[in-house]
Design a protein around this nucleic acid. Sequence first.
DNA 1: GTGAAAGCGCTAACAT
DNA 2: ATGTTAGCGCTTTCAC
Lengths: 341, 341
Amino acid sequence: MNLKKLSKILGLSQTTVSRALNGYPEVSEATRKKVQEVALAHHYIPNMRAKSLATGRSMAIGHVIPGSTRREIVNPVFADFISGAGEVYAQNDHDMLLSIVADSDEERTYRQLSAKASVDGVIVHGPRENDPRITLLKELGLPFVVHGRAGDNHGDYSWVDVNNRRSFERATEFLFDLGHRKIALINGLEFMDFAQRRKGGYLAAHRKHGRTPDPELMISEEMTEDVGYRRALDMLNRAAAPSAFLVSSMITAIGVRRAISDAGKKMGRDISVVIHDDELSYLPNGVDIPIFTATKSSVRQAGRLCAQMLLDIIREKDLTPRHILLESELTVGESTGAFQK
Amino acid sequence: MNLKKLSKILGLSQTTVSRALNGYPEVSEATRKKVQEVALAHHYIPNMRAKSLATGRSMAIGHVIPGSTRREIVNPVFADFISGAGEVYAQNDHDMLLSIVADSDEERTYRQLSAKASVDGVIVHGPRENDPRITLLKELGLPFVVHGRAGDNHGDYSWVDVNNRRSFERATEFLFDLGHRKIALINGLEFMDFAQRRKGGYLAAHRKHGRTPDPELMISEEMTEDVGYRRALDMLNRAAAPSAFLVSSMITAIGVRRAISDAGKKMGRDISVVIHDDELSYLPNGVDIPIFTATKSSVRQAGRLCAQMLLDIIREKDLTPRHILLESELTVGESTGAFQK
DNA sequence: GTGAAAGCGCTAACAT
DNA sequence: ATGTTAGCGCTTTCAC
């Protein structure tokens, strides 16, 4: 079923039918009603290919995921984020276009996306410090929102981010308050913006408490379980072993947890783990292990906010940058009352 | 830059330019060369909206992910699968359209996807027994490939699947050979096709060895870490505790592993864990824990194969069903030499 | 309030 | 080997 046939059936012109369906005011309520009925009865759904061409809008948003090299993104966070964004798109009748792309073709991908006109805007994932993609997107005039930030000495642009710095500062202080003195930081790769900010918070807390952090206790690597396990085990077997861990990802924390158990330590007041990601949908939250989460802003919510912001930008045709900084809450697993201050 | 301008610059008709760029044979090599040069110089990339409308092909594949209710799919398997499929699309100049959709509007989503003509075909994720989506897609005439199968007493359709039955049969026999007699099966939800097949393999091995499986050692639940932990702990605390676990997902296996450790058992000849998913990109494979993987066919590879099959179906306009059954290999983590037969 | 006609940027049938 | 013309299915002037 298409417009032509439908208008024939109704004995009206394509124009009128189109107007009736798209809520234009100049059509009489009587005909509008009639048109809507018949359209529904015949399962009429406008062909997007034609609609896009005519309106110049694709009603689709692109998500470009750096593929092979950095695995940061083929991780659970991604699934939750996408799922939140997808929710918003569904409500607003938009599609989501996903490009998994080798780091080397990223530039080409964006240029293509823009020239092919298959999306109205893009979400940028996993920004690095001084990310070249941002300059490129501005140059292309393609609306975009960044999940996270890409350093500060960059021109302004729209982003949604968690207050990583403050979140880790408070988590560190929390551990200090519990009596911990040697706190390990298991962080993500250094060129990731969030890793820098988290480290900043960790260091700030140390300064504030007049303590110098042990460089051996700070590592920046890929956020896999394996890394968490090995590095935590190494640290626990040192003379100056840490009594607490600050971990940048739930996945890594699983490895850390296992290391603690293998090292024969018991998690408790003496060994604590504070992680960052929370509310990932397939991992336990609040089960009976002493894990603290440093944020309460879920990844899924970030996905929703990014999507909504981008849709607003496109609708209002206003490219002036907007920002959302999600403040975090320090939450403690339910069975860990003993660790509350 | 568009065709019109480009052809004006070249002093040729749009038709010739289009033909030159799309590799039609009737254009002279001289002009083709010239056209390609100028097109490249001017960064000409054809507008997909227009191209789609003219050709009737979107050059896009839809992936419909059941969203909220069943979390089976917002899991790491999904990310790896998608990433494999995305690779193939990129190579073939196709886009991937992702719809995260509430189970209740799945039907509507497929109808829309078909009517809006925004995709040339779809991949069906997480099939259940007698899945209604398959009938619907056939009725719509939209090409599709199923990742997994949806029961057997269903009409024929194209799928890519792992030999779940044989994989679990062999894994069970392997554990028997190691001397295990009480083997627990921690499986996915019962209405999932793969869970049925895996259970079938588990039972077949028992029959073959003349053993009756303990019903208390067989559970079917959501594949989360939490479930793995709780259920394994329960089992280990029973009088007739299992000495080995067959686990349907890596995530769940993490929970099982933790339970074993908490129950004060050591994994070794006496306690083994055999899981199914392998090569998930962010989880360790072959680290120094006694985990066996029952398949070697990676999820990412399944993604590639699904995508390639669908692309072939579309290109050849041949809807006759095709199947790929990936045979599994039982592999053993590298540091677990002690557990080899 | 409704309709006729032009056009979005491309491809494809039909000339030549 | 190249050009002319007519759509693809919709929206959007412009006229009535």
